[in-house]
Amino acid sequence: MLHACVYATILLGFFGIIFKENLVMKIIAMDVMSTGVIALFVLVAARTGVHTPILAGLPGGDYADPVPQAVILTAIVIGFSIQALMLVGVMKLARDNPTLETQAIEEEYRP
């Protein structure tokens, strides 16, 4: 059931990117899709019965691999920076155009 919710979140973001006309809504849809992808990776990598990889005198056993955790943390930071960069681009477009609808911007564009 949880996998279905995560896949639905990814598809919701994907269809939002394709079908929304407003640029801010496209950015929000991309953020929803990236959140779904990160949740999918966390869901796939989640295991029970593992310890944190810190030397604390615990007896031997299974330890969690820190590399996937670092990759997901990096994906979150990169997603946030891409979202901020896209919002700056939309702010520059909003300065020149009275609307943020993609059709209207494409019609007014003169190279």
Rank of each mutant, 00 (worst) to 15 (best):
F19N: 07
F19D: 01
C5F: 02
Q83N: 10
E106N: 09
A45N: 14
I76P: 08
M33T: 05
T52D: 11
A70E: 10
V24L: 13
G79L: 06
L85N: 13
M86I: 06
D65S: 08
I82M: 11
G60R: 08
M91D: 12
A94R: 14
V6C: 08
I76T: 12
P53N: 00
P98Y: 05
R95Q: 13
T99A: 10
A70Q: 10
L40W: 13
H3Y: 02
A45P: 03
P68F: 00
V71N: 05
A84C: 14
M1K: 11
Q103G: 07
L87Q: 03
I72Q: 06
A84Y: 04
I105Q: 12
M33S: 09
L2N: 11
T48I: 03
L55G: 03
K26F: 02
P59S: 09
A64H: 05
L12S: 08
I105M: 15
I105H: 15
A29S: 15
L43I: 10
T102P: 01
L12Y: 03
L11Q: 02
V42E: 04
A75S: 11
D31Y: 02
M30I: 01
I82G: 05
H51L: 13
P53L: 01
H3M: 15
Q103C: 07
I10M: 14
E21H: 06
L23Y: 07
F14I: 01
L100H: 13
P111I: 01
G79N: 12
F41D: 06
